[in-house]
Design a protein around this nucleic acid. Structure first.
Length: 591
DNA sequence: GCCGTTTTCGGCCCGACTGTTTTCAGTCG
């Protein structure tokens, strides 16, 4: 296999930069959008795009054609794209920073560069202070004002983006508080719900989108005014009949949109998105002579705009079966909905047990029995106790001797606590050479083994891949925990050849985890989908460190749904005896 | 620059808001 250290994320960054540069250069918007779409496809790919390009196969990815295949190949072979070099020489780097300011895009950046010679944020500030921006046709005093206030904000907080992304549970919590607050003030007959990326159950959320309908005459005004009264809201920037825009004290944007009940389906469909899903949906609709917006569907043939109360009817009108919100990312769901081949997605109620949990034996906060009772309360049939292993290194090491004692304690608790099967397991460290930190004899006494990387994240992709594959080839390793090590919005995944890992997992019968900790969700949606396509069995685990966080399972199921997974593709939707028989140590015995 | 129930060229979603305008361009989601 072609080996390249050029990561997908580095390629995606390069394509985005090139798109920005072409935009500054005045390229037509569709060409720029093509670069952005290609960057997204590269970032989401679960195989090495550099390796694909070296084989001449990058154009197999959606949105990448002959030209971009060549440009990625050049980047992989020479470390640079000639067109980007040329454009970088033409436009000073400060111009890109200017396009990032609110209210300023490529057109205006180009304008201030050509008319005033502005080539940096500092030069822009000087021009605004000297009131020179208003001398350019199309620009005025208001823009000077907004430029200066944006620069002040940037100075105060140079690293943070204007609106940071937060992980889903936090956004959902704020969103639900806002919905409850609005509902309490809206009166009878109002319907209020969350849309946007929260409803799609994305990894992280930038803005909270709220959709509301009201039947009373002054309903819209009451709702918009109610929003400004909520304690979470810092300020409302605009309010009208159709809705309001606001910002929370924590800095999240809030977009409230209001419609008549008869349009709820149209509004909800529009505001659930995603952007690429809606764009693709609308392009397909145009070919049918239909124009879709949040207000309804305009029919070219009749000139009438039809509105729909439910999303089901919106999709039906467009010749599509209903698409679950988690799938609306333009990753093939429209074609599947057209052909009636969408999957029956896994649900939280399908989960029968949890195979990754911690207790006070390592870094957990509850006893075996407390965890067992909490799992039973959740309706589980089984729970694996998998404390950290002998070299965890955070003061929570479980020595071989302690593990033997822990196994006895689990067995005792299993006889004491009725109504749930307790499994004695371990989350064993995968050492840099791929070996494990207990000997095989002790590992052989365990019911369930999840192996994870917790150290030496910085080794090369080649070394990390070999390390993982060695661990998967161990006959007693049932599953790999949080396989890429990413932390959402905080830490990139470690360098790893995922395609090779998936192949090895399928070959050895090792399961790969979707770790349901909402800061991890690892495997990610696209990677879990890639793994399942490669024939890998997925297991969804809470990785709970206290009884309460067994409930994190829901975020893992959310990721599985975004990965198009059905219940049958996930191991722990099966009763333990059935799951137990399907894992590799039995498959190996059968041979 | 991509792509095909308008297939190798000519299209490529839809609307709101803002500021600068007197009909609209640019930006944003």
């Amino acid at each position: 296999m072609a080996e390249s250290e050029l990561s997908n994320s580095a390629i995606a960054d390069a394509l985005e930069e090139l798109g920005d540069l072409y935009e500054l250069d005045g390229a037509i918007v569709h060409r720029v959008l093509a670069y952005r779409a290609a960057a997204k496809a590269v970032r989401e790919a679960s195989v090495s795009v550099a390796a694909l390009a070296l084989e001449g196969r990058a154009s197999e990815l959606p949105g990448i054609g002959k030209t971009l295949q060549e440009k990625i190949l050049a980047l992989a072979q020479t470390g640079a794209i000639p067109a980007a070099e040329r454009l970088r020489a033409k436009f000073p780097p400060g111009l890109i920073a200017i396009t990032r300011l609110p209210g300023l895009g490529p057109k205006r950046a180009r304008l201030v560069h050509s008319e005033l010679g502005v080539d940096s944020l500092q030069a822009l500030r000087d021009a605004a202070l000297a009131q020179r921006l208003r001398t350019v046709r199309g620009l005025g005093p208001k823009l000077e004002e907004s430029v200066l206030s944006a620069l002040v904000e940037l100075d105060a907080n140079p690293t943070a983006h204007a609106s940071p992304r937060v992980v889903l549970p936090r956004a959902l919590e704020i969103g639900q508080e806002l919905v409850a607050g609005l509902a309490a003030r809206a009166g009878e007959g109002a319907h209020i719900e969350l849309a946007g990326s929260i409803r799609r159950q994305a990894d992280s959320v930038k803005d909270i989108d709220i959709v509301a309908t009201t039947i009373s005459e002054g309903g819209p005004q009451i709702l918009a005014k109610s929003l400004s009264k909520l304690e979470q809201i810092e300020q409302v920037s605009s309010a009208g009949k159709a809705g309001a825009k606001a910002r929370t004290h924590s800095g999240m944007g809030v977009d409230l949109r209001i419609a008549a009940p008869g349009q709820l389906g149209n509004l909800l469909q529009h505001f659930t998105g995603s952007g690429p899903h809606n764009a693709a949906l609308r392009e397909a609709a145009v070919r049918m002579g239909l124009h879709v917006s949040e207000y309804g569907i305009l029919n070219d043939a009749t000139g009438a705009t039809d509105t729909y109360e439910t999303e089901h009817h919106v999709y039906q009108r467009l010749g599509l079966s209903y698409i679950d919100p988690e799938l609306r990312e333009n990753r093939g769901e429209l074609e599947a909905a057209r052909g009636g081949t969408l999957p029956q997605l896994i649900e939280l109620a399908d989960i029968r047990g949890d195979l990754h949990s911690h207790t006070i034996a390592s870094d957990g906060h509850n006893t075996i029995e407390e965890m067992a009772l909490a799992a039973r309360d959740r309706g589980y049939e089984y729970l694996a106790i998998t404390d950290h292993s002998a070299s965890h290194g955070f003061g929570n090491d479980v020595s071989p001797e302690q593990l033997r004692r822990q196994i006895e304690l689990v067995r005792e608790a299993n006889t004491r606590v009725q109504g749930i099967e307790l499994l004695a397991g371990s989350e064993v460290n995968i050492l840099p050479d791929g070996s494990l930190d207990y000997d095989d004899e002790l590992l052989g006494e365990l019911d369930w083994i999840v192996a994870s990387v917790h150290t030496s994240f910085g080794i090369s992709a080649q070394a990390m891949t070999a390390r993982m594959i060695t661990a998967m080839e161990h006959p007693l390793v049932d599953a790999i925990g949080h396989p890429t090590g990413r932390l959402i919005e905080r830490r990139e995944p470690y360098a790893l050849d995922l395609a090779a890992v998936f192949t090895a997992a399928a070959r050895t019968g090792t399961m790969l985890e979707i770790n349901a900790n909402p800061a991890r969700r690892d495997l990610s949606d696209v990677n879990a989908r890639g793994a399942a396509r490669a024939g890998v069995t997925i297991v969804i685990d809470s990785d709970a460190h206290r009884a309460g966080t067994l409930a994190n399972m829901r975020w893992g199921v959310a990721t599985a749904r975004r990965a198009w997974l059905t219940a049958t593709q996930v191991a722990n939707t099966r009763p333990w005896p059935e799951l137990e028989q399907r894992r590799k140590r039995h498959a190996q015995q059968r041979r």
